[in-house]
């Protein structure tokens, strides 16, 4: 078997066009963290269970540890580093800070993007909706109550700014 060759990829990361040279089956997580030095995306399990590595890929929440680099050809990616410039994600970040949604911080990038993804599709989610949409993001610190509250506050803050 011949050794795999790197391929060239172009995609948009946090609004900026990027040219990459990566192995086709390299994990998007490693491409982001090592090639682009976007270390805000975290690895918690490497098997798609914990959601710490979640990013938004073409408008969908994905675990970047399960996405091979070849799949991001031409894609638009939002990572936590781009959240401050994303109107919904920025509001979610602020709510997490104010309402105790952040403790150790390692799940926060993924949880914040998952919440932003929810609020992009549903402006007024119920508590059950919030819990369901965050079920793929493990948190060991908070017991989820303050995360759920933070998302609810973000939703109502966004309602105020949208009206």
């Amino acid at each position: 078997m011949s050794a795999p060759k790197k391929i060239s990829l172009h995609c948009t990361v946090n609004g900026e066009p990027r040219e990459l040279n990566a192995y086709p089956m390299a994990r998007l997580l490693d491409v982001l963290r090592e090639d682009l030095r976007l270390t805000g995306t975290k690895e918690g399990c490497g098997e798609g269970e914990c959601g710490a590595c979640a990013v938004i890929l073409n408008g969908e929440l994905v675990n970047s540890c399960l996405v091979p680099a070849i799949q991001v050809q031409g894609a638009e990616i939002l990572t936590i580093e781009g959240a401050a410039n994303h109107p919904i994600a920025a509001q979610v970040q602020e709510a997490f800070l104010r309402h105790g949604g952040v403790q150790c911080g390692i799940c926060s990038p993924g949880v914040i993007l998952a919440a932003a993804n929810l609020l992009s599709h549903d402006k007024a989610p119920s508590e059950a909706d919030i819990r369901e949409s965050l079920a793929g993001n493990l948190c060991r610190c908070t017991g989820y109550s303050k995360i759920v509250d933070s998302v609810a506050y973000a939703a109502s803050d966004l309602k105020g700014t949208r009206s």
Binding site: G40, E81, Q93, F96, L97
Partner: peptide
């Protein structure tokens, strides 16, 4: 908290 929420 702010650094953590920003992934920084």
């Amino acid at each position: 908290g702010r650094e953590k929420a920003r992934g920084a």
